[in-house]
């Protein structure tokens, strides 16, 4: 089951303390930049949960 992004907690990449760390840390291409936001590509998600653990805003989770 792919992850979910809480857009309110996430905010714009330009305001992210990790400068879009989740995108850089995901090697499956499941998180991408889209108009300054982080967007999810669910079919690429491998459920490794690295993004959940490393998001500085705790904006990524699994419901």
């Amino acid at each position: 089951m792919p992850v979910t992004i809480d857009t309110e907690k996430c905010g714009k990449i330009e305001n992210c303390p990790g400068e879009g760390l989740c995108i850089k840390i995901c090697e499956k291409g499941a998180l991408v930049e889209k108009d300054g936001d982080v967007a999810l590509v669910p079919e690429n998600c491998d459920d490794c949960d690295l993004c959940i653990q490393n998001c500085p805003n705790q904006a990524i989770s699994k419901v």
Binding site: G18, L21, K24, I25, L50, Q53, N54, P56
Partner: peptide, 11 residues
């Protein structure tokens, strides 16, 4: 600190 991002040189 964020150990993995530091080790990978991302931050």
């Amino acid at each position: 600190g964020p150990v993995l991002p530091i080790a990978r040189g991302l931050v």
